[in-house]
């Protein structure tokens, strides 16, 4: 469905995208991960044909650079910060984009209802909350039922329930056979939404493969901070015995355990079983920047 070959984009001397290639088939989801400025949005804009670039992007065999209009018929795009005409109502916005895409106004009404904006159709888009605007942008992307969805940071600005809703939506669309490429810097979303991942750093692909392998390769660690009932020395061997903990350090009153996000509960359970009371705890999730640094060091060691 989507082929990117050696895509390069430079701004002056700065390489925003440096030889990225990828393939995405129908019914697949690819998460593009990277810190701010890594090249995620640049890659997605090249796929849409919004930027001039070197290399080639094919949408179902159609070259975006040569036949942009034809290629964009097959794409539904949700930008990072959807910019809509503020003077139009939700209903008018749906109708305007339906006219642009050549679909019926009835279809526009359907998708607006489907994303939960049925009660806001007469509201001007500049009066919508960030989450509602994001949902409207999603409705517009789905208007013509395109086989490829390009979602740029779709989770940004969404609350927890909206993020869960988004995960469901991505799964539904994938099950309908759509190819989906989405960018995110929320690493914890990736295993739930995408089977494969592409990590970008300074425009270069530093990892490309199954999303599960990403978490394994990157050795991404959450930090579990525990304040115990004066049993820290006893707790260390218990934590180590779980075999899922990485480094265990003392920081003042707190015991800091590095582990994978999914193993936190196992460590807490082991402490309970050993009769060690936890007075307080907090969790620090690994950021995508840390993941990228880990990936770079892995790549460096391999060289």
């Amino acid at each position: 469905m989507l082929t990117v070959r050696d895509a390069r984009k430079r701004y002056g001397t700065n390489a925003a995208l440096d030889g990225v290639s990828l393939e995405l088939g129908k019914g697949s989801v690819l998460a593009v991960i990277g810190a701010n400025g890594a090249g995620k949005t640049t890659l997605l804009k090249c796929i849409i044909g919004l930027l001039k670039f070197e290399g080639q992007v094919l949408i179902d065999g159609i070259d975006v650079a040569r036949k942009g209009k034809q290629a964009r018929r097959l794409i539904g795009y949700v930008p990072q910060q959807p910019a809509l005409h503020g003077d139009l109502s939700v209903r008018e916005t749906g109708m305007f984009y339906a006219d642009l895409k050549g679909v019926s106004h009835e279809r526009a009404r359907e998708v607006v209802e489907w994303v939960g904006l049925a009660d806001h159709t007469e509201k001007r888009t500049d009066a919508l909350s960030g989450g509602m605007r994001q949902r409207l942008a999603l409705a517009l992307a789905l208007l013509a039922d395109p086989p490829l969805l390009v979602l740029d940071e779709p989770a940004s600005g969404l609350d927890v329930s909206a993020r869960l809703e988004l995960r469901r939506l991505v799964q539904d669309q994938r099950e309908l056979g759509k190819a989906i490429i989405l960018s995110t810097h929320w690493l914890e979303d990736v295993p739930y939404v995408a089977a494969s991942a592409l990590v970008l750093d300074q425009g270069k692909a530093v990892f490309q493969g199954p999303a599960k392998q990403l978490t394994a390769n990157a050795a991404v660690g959450s930090k579990l901070y525990l304040r115990l009932n004066g049993h820290s020395p006893d707790a260390v061997p218990v934590i180590r015995s779980t075999a899922v903990a990485g480094a265990v350090d003392q920081a003042g009153d707190w015991l800091v355990v590095t582990c994978r996000a999914e193993n936190k509960a196992q460590i807490v359970e082991a402490l309970f079983s050993a009769g060690i009371t936890i007075l307080d705890f907090r969790v620090e999730e690994a950021s995508v920047d840390e993941a990228v640094i880990d990936l770079q060091s892995v790549a460096g060691e391999g060289r």
Partner: peptide, 17 residues
């Protein structure tokens, strides 16, 4: 300036149109 140009050009429309 409003950012709507990119939204418009991400639709099936050419720059000339």
């Amino acid at each position: 300036e409003r950012g709507t140009l990119a939204t418009l050009l991400s639709q099936p429309i050419s720059a000339a149109e």
